[in-house]
Design a protein around this nucleic acid. Sequence first.
DNA 1: CATCTTGTTGAGACCGAGTATCATCCGACG
DNA 2: CGTCGGATGATACTCGGTCTCAACAAGATG
Lengths: 138, 138
Amino acid sequence: MTNAVDRLNQAGTRLTEPRRRLARLVDRQPGPFTAADLLSTVEQESRPIGRATVFRTLALLEAEGVVERIDLPNGDHAYVACAGGRHHHHAVCVECGRVTDLPDLDVGLDVAELSRRSGYEIQAHRIELFGRCADCRR
Amino acid sequence: MTNAVDRLNQAGTRLTEPRRRLARLVDRQPGPFTAADLLSTVEQESRPIGRATVFRTLALLEAEGVVERIDLPNGDHAYVACAGGRHHHHAVCVECGRVTDLPDLDVGLDVAELSRRSGYEIQAHRIELFGRCADCRR
DNA sequence: CATCTTGTTGAGACCGAGTATCATCCGACG
DNA sequence: CGTCGGATGATACTCGGTCTCAACAAGATG
């Protein structure tokens, strides 16, 4: 499995100790997490990592496609580790906050048609679904 | 045309002077705007409106469906006045920031199918397109 | 292995969006 | 016109995120 550390290694950046630790931490996240989550975890460790570094590394990981930022309905930002680099979307559970990847969702989205109708040259899109996940429905 | 003031009037809230002024201001916005935009406009007027009131009124307008909040790719929040109450989505120009409503976009989105595949009970969704608008392409 | 260069780190100040508090005020309604 | 509960606004505060800058270490080079 291509984990976050490996992927960082392949980027043209230095593989420093804080980055390695943060990447490993991200890999271990079961669901979505916020920058604050990482911060509080890391601050309790024997050798804390600076606030700025956490944000910087998160930005780096996002640029490398290791994590993706999603906008929760309440307005704040969370990150999810994205296994493959492939294009996909997310479903967010409004109850427990869990996020599920939906790899092959594009099916109905005809980008060419959208471009025509909107007059935009569409470069990217984001689809977010909100609802109750299987567990919370029970 | 049902303007923001009218719609506020129909809600079960008090039609106070600051709200009226803000609603009128929102109506006059040509494109998307941030809370800060409103604030700076309003602070220059002869009788300024308090910071808190601007945010409160914006939340009220959003609850009434008069404006909708969109999340820009850079992470900050903007608002757009939404003419009708109907469900629609937005295209955001990555160059000039303009936002265009796309009223009948759902076409390809089969919610029932999505529910089945994701296990989620889908309650809402959001589609945001990013690209260059017709003007910026020239 | 020693050295050098350049990217990275971390402490802390800073910034800006948004919220909480609370005394005052005023819109709606009787 | 008087009342009263919702709305206002000044201000303090929180919190996510950025900036700055001196100290540091990764990795290249000899």
